[in-house]
Amino acid sequence: MSDDQILFHNVSKFYGDVLGVNKVDLRIPPGITSLVGPNGSGKTTLMNLMTGLVHPGSGSISVRGVSPFAPEKLMRIVGYATQYDAAPRGVTGFGFVLAGLLLHGFPRAEAERRAALAIETVALTHASSRKIAAYSKGMRQRIRLAQAIAHEPEVLVLDEPLNGLDPLVRAETIALFRDYAARGRHVILSSHVLQEVDVFSDQVILIANGMIVAEGEIRNVRDEIHEHPSQFLLHCQQPSRVAALLFEQAEVLAVKIDPEGRGVLVTTRHRDAFAAAVQRIALSGIEIDGVLPMDENVDALYEYLIGGGK
């Protein structure tokens, strides 16, 4: 077993009859990893499995060599900010972070120092003595982040950490992730919006209906599914004309006018034949300003994989 990886071996989890995740095999190296998938795809389930909040129906999990069944060891190296937007009754922001640290066994003075530091990191110092119940949504999100990072975990698991954050805080939070990753730690986060995470993620895991659809670096993910159709954007002045011409080509699967008016969206299986077709059209006198592969931009990949191939 490699001691710096998170391993899922054939893990399945059912909630009664409802599928949580199904037959997941994963090997997550250190760095920033983003779990991306639509609502109900199993991101939270995966994270809860990793942290021992739910137990797998079958299969085994190991987080840097530690089993989630041993919280006393696992939680020393893991910090998890859940998606549950609730805090214990009647605690202040500072008290909340402090309680977590005390449970880690830090002496009181050290715990207070670390709590103050973590709260400063998420820029909540001004509100740290107020009750969490009176926090705004974004503030609650940040205080939970503070609690997760207060003990400097080696594995930081964050469920939708960027939700409800304003742009400034968001940038700071991302800087924090990068800092963690640079020190050889794991940062695992989830999101629905790929654009949000593709910039800073070292790898993405695409998940849909409880199954891992693709995993790896964004480029590799693309290669992994190279037998699948890929999408291109053709910049042109007369989209409908181009669309009509393209439609006659056998190698083109689908043609769509770009809703943003930039040109035509083409889906094809054979890139080379498609390139030739584009050349023919350009030679026939219709102006084509450029061809842009859409799946380098992870968004299209996401739309393809998760959106059922539309």
Binding site: A70, P71, E72, V78, Y84, A86, A87, P88, G100, L103
Partner: peptide
Amino acid sequence: DKSLHYWFLAPVR
């Protein structure tokens, strides 16, 4: 209250 997980996330048996 949906706050039990905070206890489960502490390094405690």
